[in-house]
Simulated scan of single mutants.
Amino acid sequence: MQNFRAWPYFIGSNFTGVICLLPYLIFRKSNQVFYGTKDQWLLILEQRATGACLLVATIGLLGYAVIAGNWEDYIQQFFHKPFVHLISLDFCLMCLIFPISSLFDDDMARRGLKDKRIFWVVALFPLFGPLVYLCLRPSLPETFFKECDATANSLL
């Protein structure tokens, strides 16, 4: 629905971090309405089970880091290894940018969520706020898609 595709920025962010995502987040237009049909990929990503799997995996990885991690070594590497320093700051920057971008506002509007308290709870709890939101958010309404398809077809 944007004038440009998101995938090049996503692929670039895997190599450069949030720096590559910034142009996409800055120049994308707010889009609180979805026109089209749910394809198989969207049906999988939208399921609450997908959010629950991501939450469980994150808790497992974080638990492993707390139990088996060497925090003294991490602190030493943070100050002496540019990659560790950069990726740590990159995570913090993404936590700050996420609530500022219109991505979350758009998703809430598409799902009919108007309560700003939901926004602030998710925004103020980095990593776990968005993951819990993925687990609890309502599904996109099917009738909405059918109405948009009928409207789009009538315009053609």
Rank of each mutant, 00 (worst) to 15 (best):
R5Y: 13
A6G: 06
P8T: 04
Y9I: 01
F10V: 15
S13K: 06
S13Y: 04
N14T: 12
F15W: 06
L22R: 12
I26D: 11
I26G: 03
R28L: 08
K29S: 05
N31Y: 03
Q32R: 11
V33Q: 07
Y35V: 10
G36L: 00
G36D: 02
T37S: 13
K38W: 01
D39I: 05
W41N: 04
L45P: 00
A52L: 15
L54N: 00
A57C: 05
T58L: 02
I59L: 06
G60H: 07
L62F: 14
G63H: 00
Y64R: 10
Y64Q: 09
Y64H: 12
V66E: 02
V66H: 01
I67Q: 14
N70K: 04
E72P: 10
D73C: 12
Y74N: 03
Q77I: 09
F79M: 11
P82L: 05
P82S: 13
F83I: 12
V84M: 03
V84P: 00
H85N: 14
H85Y: 15
L89M: 09
M94S: 15
C95E: 05
C95Q: 09
I97C: 02
I97P: 00
S101W: 08
S101G: 05
S102T: 14
S102N: 11
S102D: 09
D105H: 13
D105T: 06
M108P: 02
M108S: 07
M108C: 08
R110D: 02
I118P: 06
F119Y: 05
F119M: 01
W120D: 05
F125W: 09
L127W: 06
L127K: 03
G129C: 04
P130H: 02
V132H: 04
V132K: 02
S139D: 07
S139K: 14
P141K: 14
T143C: 08
T143R: 13
F145H: 09
F145L: 15
F145Y: 10
K146T: 09
K146G: 03
D149V: 14
A150T: 06
T151C: 09
N153C: 05
N153F: 04
L155W: 07
L155A: 14
L155I: 10
L155G: 03
